[in-house]
Design a protein around this nucleic acid. Structure first.
Lengths: 253, 253
DNA sequence: CTGTTATGCGTAGACCATACGCAGAACTAG
DNA sequence: CTAGTTCTGCGTATGGTCTACGCATAACAG
């Protein structure tokens, strides 16, 4: 049995506890003008508007009309704020899947939900992850993902591994797609001209003797026009789901 | 036909050009005491010893007995230095696979080679990637990867997609494994105690009604002891390769 | 009214990347 | 040999970052 109550173990940072609603306001002292949710919201607003590098403690404080150091009464460090920003940025989990769908349709929906979030908030990809998820909404997402595999005969450990596999894939694909977008913006190139420019550059650099296979790819026109990123996403996801399907078939046999 | 010579297009940063050996020293002026490879080696040494955050321009300069600003004669920015550090950090590509192996054995070897590099130099995972690979050794790795799929009937575009799929998986798996290691070191916990501590924390936080599936995972003891990370790596890789196998079978039919 | 406590925030320190410009070294042309 | 040119190394300075510390003040308990 898992014990749901256990006061031992390493203490949770105060700001994380408040995210779980575990912290009541102490009776004495001035009424706080700031709150953890208000700070996190402001930080998310800054990141949405100007990207993650713009999120500095002073910028967030300015957004709230407060002084920089006022924030440190509520969050222990910038890293803690980033953790909470991720939780807020992902937003509510996609919710339980239709009971009529099979595991494959459910996982596809789950993966696309994360895909959509990452497309809308690319800065989530730039937050350095410091550990396994411990914030409420992050665990909601995990719970929903696990339920996608309800009804299969997979052992619990493999369900978890599969979830990590998929979420890793989604993040990776979003990272690559986003790099092209950010790179073209930084270079002042039309988004559609980014991959062709890359292709030209590689073609100029490589020696055909040393890089025959790469040259074949270039000549096949693979990088000439941007593929629809959604097609690329679907391709990889279907490969992974095919692999999972093979596993489920084997485990059921 | 791809044109291997094309002087148009966006110019390559000077330091990248020198990595391709395209820059001769101008005849006039004092003999440089520093060189791009020397700087990159020093930076890699710092990262190996003290991690990526320790790599500051002043620290690298100190390592070389030079002044901070001297570095900027050779690299245009810190980002440029990071790009070259990645190229050097990956080291030479694993080389051509045995012609007797099938594509699956070849790709497995290729994936493990990257896995090993990332295990040895975890800081590579923390370098923010700013665009598609343009450095010599990075392209060597890509070339070797593409050759793993020689002999299959896959279109070139799908070969590339598969490579991105696998390298993304390897990076993701390494990131997760590394987070546990870094997290335990930061928290001063025994590495083997990290996941159990995480399990206790989650068990303390979650409501059994809201998180039934997650609770089931916890009760199954999934997080109680650290699995061998290599087993976890193999599991995910085999799922992906199974998916690719299904694709190859379909394309050959 | 007094004591306690928590809040907001000002100051200051220790970093960071890097723009700019100068002193001098090494070569070429005469 | 000399003068001119060009490139290297680096000192200075600017503006940014996070955050440790401590003080004044506001709000409540008794």
């Amino acid at each position: 049995m898992a014990e749901t109550k256990d006061d031992s173990g390493p203490a949770l940072p105060p700001a994380i506890e408040s995210a779980w609603g575990l912290r009541g306001r102490p009776p004495r002292g001035p009424r706080p003008g700031l709150s953890v949710p208000a700070i996190v919201d402001a930080a998310v607003r800054v990141a949405d508007a100007d990207g993650l590098p713009a999120v500095s403690m002073s910028r967030v404080a300015k957004e709230l009309g407060a002084a920089t150091m006022a924030l440190y009464r509520h969050v222990g460090s910038k890293d803690e704020l980033l953790t909470l920003m991720v939780d807020a940025g992902y937003g509510p989990s996609p919710g339980p899947a239709s009971p009529d769908d099979d595991w494959r349709a459910r996982l596809t929906r789950w993966a696309w939900a994360e895909h959509d979030v990452l497309r809308q908030r690319p800065w989530l990809l730039h937050v350095p992850i410091t550990g396994p998820p411990i914030t409420p909404q992050q665990l909601d997402w995990m719970e929903d993902g696990l339920r996608c595999l309800d009804g299969t005969t997979l052992p619990e450990g493999e369900k978890m591994s599969i979830l990590l596999l998929i979420t890793g894939y989604v993040r990776n694909e979003a990272t690559l797609t986003n790099q092209i977008a950010e790179g073209s913006r930084a270079a002042g190139v039309e988004p559609g001209e980014m991959m062709p420019a890359y292709r030209r550059m590689v073609g100029r650099l490589i020696d055909p003797v040393r890089f025959p296979a790469l040259l074949r790819v270039l000549n096949a026109g693979v990088l000439d026009q941007d593929d629809d990123p959604d097609d690329e996403f679907t391709f990889g996801l279907d490969r992974i789901l095919d692999g999972i399907e093979a596993l489920i078939a084997r485990r059921a046999a």
